[in-house]
Structures are given as C-alpha cells and as structure tokens.
Nucleic acid binder design. Sequence first.
DNA 1: CTTTTGATGCCCT
DNA 2: GGGCATCAAAAGA
Length: 192
Amino acid sequence: MTAAADLRLDFTQPPQVLARRLIGARLTLDGVGGRIVETEAYDAGDPASHSFSGPSARNAAMFGPVGRAYVSRIYGVHLCLNVVCGPEPGGAVLIRAIEPLVGIEDMRIRRGADAPRALCAGPGRLCQALGVTMAHNHVSLTAEPFVLEPPVAPLDIAVGPRIGITKAVDRPWRFALAGSAYVSRRFPGPGA
DNA sequence: CTTTTGATGCCCT
DNA sequence: GGGCATCAAAAGA
C-alpha cells in the first residue's frame, strides 16, 4: 500500500523538491481552488528569498513550523501564498498559478474577470480568487479551511528561471505543469 | 501582438 | 526614501 507514498507531500523536503511535488496537487480554500500548475522555490540562504536577511515580523512564518502558509504583501497591492517547508528554517514554495476547478463562480466575482485563464494565473491573482488574506498567514495548509492533496500520478514538469526577482535570477527554481495553459507566463518553446 | 508605466503598503537602510 | 516574489490599462507596431 505504499506505492502512493512516493507522491506524498513531505514538508521537510527542500523547497526545490517540494516545489516539484506540488505541481498537480489540488489546493482549495473553503471549497474554492483547483490544481497547482506553477510554483517557485525559495531556499534558506537564497538571496532572492524574503528569509535571506533573517527573521522579521514580515517573514516570521518562514521560520515557523513547516506545512503552514506564509502570506506576504508585495508591491503594496498584492498577496503571495507560500508553503513553508524545508529541512531548515527559512524555506518556502511560492504558489504562482492554479488551474481553476471548483468554486469558479466565486473566483469570477472576486476577480471581476470571466476568462478562466485570468482567474488564477499569477500569485496575486490566485490569492484574490481563492480569498486568501493576511489572516491566513501562519495557518496550516493541511487542515480546514485549506485542503491540499498530492497528485495521483507523476506529471511532466517544465523548469525555468524564477520571475520578478532581481537576485539569484539564474537559478532554475520555477516549476510548472508542462503544456498547461494556466501558467502565469509561458515557458520558452523548444525552438529557442 | 509587445512594451511601458502607475498604483500601492510595508520593510529595510 | 528606495525597492519590492505584481497587475491592469494604455500606447505602439
């Protein structure tokens, strides 16, 4: 009965490993959500990570128990949802895009948009669509109101550099479901 | 289609 | 005061 154990989520794994494992996982908040199709890893000691300069009021969740949410505000406007993880404090996986599956009407209302691809393609967008707020900071992702289920079977994963950062730009720590139309930005095609 | 730019809150120096 | 793990709207090609 342990064939599925290979896919089980282990939040003590390094962010680069868990970020891969989370592709295809099903995430819902109060019954609204879908399949994770894009993530990024932020490691302890990673210059691009919010945890790089050590614990602070803002990033405290990244130094707390694994398996919980780290919610942060960026550009003063948007929220980002992370999964705290890793063998040492300071690691997290940023959830960047979700393929909408359930609660789509709620998402449309919250987002003020109709196109399925405009609902959850981007960290700020998916937080708005799922109803994530700063009140979810430090909240466990493995208990209500969240449901987080690993993928049923291994999936084809695309890898590339992370987006929107200015440090450690070249680390290939962005992961996505290969060929998905719901990612925030396309990956470079085979031709270039 | 692509590139550019303003809005906006909070942490850090 | 600078800079940011973004988004949407506007302008150009």
